[in-house]
Amino acid sequence: MSDSVAARFCGVHFGYHRTPVLSDVHLDIPLRRISCIVGPNGGGKTTLLKLILGLVEPQSGHLEVLGCSPRKARARIGYMPQAIHIDPRFPIDVASIVLMGRLRGSLPGFFNREDRKVLDRVLEEVELGDLKRAAFAELSGGQKQRVLIARALATEPELLLLDEPTAMVDAHIEAQLLARLKELHQRMTIVLVSHDDAFVSELVDRVICVNRSVEEHPTEKVSDPGLTHLYGEKVKAVRHDHRINHHHHHHD
């Protein structure tokens, strides 16, 4: 695998029972860049993330993550699931959730000083420093989402996967957060899923469109101040009518 690829899909097929979800996926996710996965609901965006995490296995084809199999790469990946999968009234405080990112393996044990240091650091990064002991149930939707981002960051990942970070956060806050993450973690690869397939943040380097098949589309600058106002940030338009041709010059 080349040095510049965080994840590589080669002809990957995946389906639940007899319904194909993704077919013939060829894709390189570039290292140390921000990629954005867009596409319609049910198009396979989350499945793509689950394949990277090794939570589901491709039925055919091959994929490599951070130079090894998805399962082996797992420990080096930070994952933020969609908040709808989490019980919003679970009796737990912010710190206990974020510390889950510091779990390693099955053996019983306790968190150490290093873990608590990381906890404080990532809470600052998502600007939740003063809500460390707050009840998860009492947070707003956006704050809950940021707790889950902090948990993913607490794993100190090389690859950060964010599933719909915009779902419950207003676009303005999300743009700030993304800018902050990019600044703080220049060596980290970020993949985020978005349900908005028309415009993506200006910080996004690569747009991946998923709808059973996967295509990369170029983006172009928009200078409409109305749009900037609406999104609260500088955005780029996705040109779904154009396609970036893949040249799979494998370097390995």
Binding site: L55, I77, Y79, I92, M100, L103, G105, T155
Partner: peptide, 23 residues
């Protein structure tokens, strides 16, 4: 007491616990 953090993680978010190597 000993299994607290892992039991809690499994109850809260099974998938994430699995990703952290918890059985």
């Amino acid at each position: 007491v000993l299994g607290y953090s892992r039991l809690q993680a499994v109850c809260f978010d099974e998938e994430f616990a699995r990703l952290r190597g918890v059985h």
